[in-house]
């Protein structure tokens, strides 16, 4: 079912495969796209409450059976969300799933003549650093892994996807690097942090942060499916806000702790499982990691639909 002329997403491929469809972002994406195109989902997890027209395969993306899915379902495009980011996961297993999984699924696309591949990366791959420019362009070196080893997988996936862009010119590969994703059901580190009633802040630091609503990320992924664009795109939400302003918008009462105290304390609390906030992620509430989204605005026609206030408040779970 090709999209009609009134569609928000012109040039939508006739069938799209989504990996990681059973996650929070995947579900939101399925909800947005299921009327627009035929969807094939691949995820190790079951996809309950899936829209009826979504064909879901409960399957590990590293398995050879994925080939069979592609052979029968003939997707024209792939959206690869299947990157796991769980700081409590055994490193070797997460690494294999993320890196080998990405490798395998992209090679599957080559074999089955998929025309468009969209890989979800993150603006976190640049890493928060005191000497960062206020708005990092796509060419910035990916320095995140220098201090924060858990993000090394994502950096590796991103770089692998970049090499895929030029190794397979017959496929239009797009890498999206959205800023911190937030939303009512999103359970990543930034959303969880904003939900704390007494969040800890680094005393004397108040970096500008960029947030994007999960539904806006889905719209960006859908826009990336249109024929034409290829390469790396930062995706920014409705703008930048001081961390303190975001917290006061949510009525939070922060507890400022001096950095030299905070780091060892948090490391200890994380090790003893008192908190789920990895100590290295402190950099995100201390230093800048904001990106320049003008390339996506120009090439993808990207504009966020949610306002800054709506985006910040979206972490509040209704009811």
């Amino acid at each position: 079912m090709a999209s009609g002329p009134q569609s928000e997403f012109p040039g939508m491929p006739a069938a799209v495969c989504i990996t990681g469809i059973a996650g929070n972002l995947g579900k939101a994406l399925a909800k947005l796209l299921h009327g627009e195109t035929r969807l094939i989902g691949i995820d190790r997890r079951p996809f309950r409450e899936a829209p009826r027209d979504v064909e879901h395969h409960q399957l590990d993306i590293r398995k050879n059976k994925v080939d069979e899915v592609f052979r029968r379902a003939r997707p024209e495009a792939l959206i690869h969300l299947g990157i796991m980011h769980d700081p409590r996961m055994p490193r070797a297993e997460a690494h294999s799933f993320n890196v080998i999984g990405t490798h395998k699924i992209l090679e599957t696309c080559v074999r089955h003549g998929v025309k468009k591949v969209v890989v979800l990366s993150s603006a976190n791959v640049y890493g928060p650093r005191p000497d960062n420019s206020n708005f990092l362009p796509e060419e910035t070196p990916l320095m995140a892994a220098a201090t924060y080893s858990d993000i090394a997988d994502l950096v590796e996936v991103d770089i692998y996807a970049q090499s895929f862009v030029w190794r397979h010119p017959e496929i239009e590969t797009v890498i999206l690097r959205p800023v911190h994703i937030v939303g009512p059901t999103v359970k990543n580190a930034p959303s969880n942090y904003l939900r704390l009633s007494r969040p800890i802040t680094v005393m004397g630091f108040d970096p500008m942060v960029q947030l994007i609503h999960v539904e806006d990320v889905c719209r960006a992924l859908a826009l990336a499916l249109r024929p034409g664009p290829r390469g790396v795109y930062n995706v920014v939400g409705p703008g930048e806000v001081p961390l303190s302003a975001a917290l006061s918008e949510l009525g939070r009462r922060p507890i400022p702790v001096p950095a030299p105290l905070l780091r060892p304390l948090l490391a200890r609390a994380f090790r003893s499982r008192l908190v789920s906030f990895p100590p290295d992620e402190l950099d995100h509430i201390q230093y800048l990691c904001a990106v320049d989204g003008s390339r996506a605005e120009r090439d993808l026609g990207w504009r966020p639909a949610r306002s800054l206030r709506e985006t910040i408040r979206s972490v509040l779970v209704p009811g």
Binding site: M208, E240, V241, P242
Partner: peptide, 10 residues
């Protein structure tokens, strides 16, 4: 300048 009174650079 946005609704929080800052420009993109803070």
């Amino acid at each position: 300048r946005n609704e929080y009174g800052v420009d993109p650079y803070g």
